[in-house]
Design a protein around this nucleic acid. Structure first.
Lengths: 168, 168
DNA sequence: ATATATTTTCAGAAATATTTGAAAGTTTAA
DNA sequence: TTAAACTTTCAAATATTTCTGAAAATATAT
């Protein structure tokens, strides 16, 4: 397989992969494109490479920036804006974990706190089952929260060396 | 808040939450319903509780079973099939990790292996960047694969006690 | 100031994913 | 058997998400 074909396949697969994780295809594809581009890209570069419209490109580039996965680059003397992505995959993964934690785990824990306050007879079977499930989710969520917090602060080597050793 | 309202909200939120993770709303809602139901439920129970059609219920119940998150229960003397879900959230989480790993991580690593074979001049900047990204993803993926493998074999307490201690 | 380049917005169009419901299939009881 | 109870299937309908493209807004150069 040659490079062009490999890139094409990487971008397509990354997009499909994103779809399974609630990330829109174009955003994942733009990210993939930036990952494998040695130089910063303009919006027009991406529109052409991925065959997408101006509006779509613009919106998804900005979402990527919102996720902390891409950033604007100023190139002196150039009128257009350029964009790049962090290429260290470990940092990328940490960033994604950090964002999803903030956007999803934390709100979910708040909901559990609220649902834990449900009023009713705790000897009732329905009530008991409900509260146990809520408590279980909360407990797991809190563990995950703590663990991921530490994870995003960890350095890669530290992570590999320790975690893999522990998990043997 | 009373129990009925709390249940309603839990089911709705679980469904919305699932959506962010590439899981269809109905499947997540059925799962939520089973989680908080002390007794096994029939398809008709679920159709009524969630206001969904027969076909939708049937298809998603079977998907849940395919994910190992629900199972059929035979109740002697009853004609209808009943369904339950594992209520230990730690086991549920492990099961989800196990399935997603099999369905997504493993195929992704296979793709990286293939893309790593891309032919071309390794001194070319485009080529170099591409191969480095692929290698990075592969490396992270393999770590995750190993780690998650051990995770799904771990017992909850063991996990809590060790991991949280390590990650301090 | 004016023109030109570039970015952003957003209503409608298109694509994708989900759901319905009726018909076909299967199982069980008598 | 036969019939009733129940489950499964899937084409079409619906709902949801994503994408387009042209117009508006903004920024930059002359």
């Amino acid at each position: 397989m040659n490079l062009e074909e490999a890139k094409r396949q990487f971008i397509a697969s990354w997009g499909a992969f994103g779809t399974n994780w609630g990330i829109n295809r174009t955003m994942a594809q733009i990210h993939a494109l930036l990952l494998i581009s040695p130089n910063p890209q303009t919006q027009d570069d991406m529109m052409e490479a991925l065959n997408i419209s101006r509006g779509n490109a613009n919106m998804n580039i900005r979402d990527l920036i919102g996720w902390g996965l891409a950033e604007r680059v100023i190139i002196p003397g150039e009128r257009k804006e350029y964009f790049t992505a962090e290429k260290d995959i470990w940092k990328v993964a940490k960033q994604i974990v950090k964002e999803r934690k903030k956007r999803e785990l934390e709100p979910m824990l708040q909901l559990m706190d609220k649902l834990e306050q449900t009023e009713g007879d705790k000897r009732d079977k329905e009530m008991k089952t409900f509260l146990e499930v809520i408590a279980g989710i909360k407990r797991l969520g809190m563990q995950a929260d703590k663990t991921l917090d530490t994870l995003v602060k960890a350095e890669e080597n530290w992570f590999i060396n320790n975690l893999i050793k522990i998990f043997r």
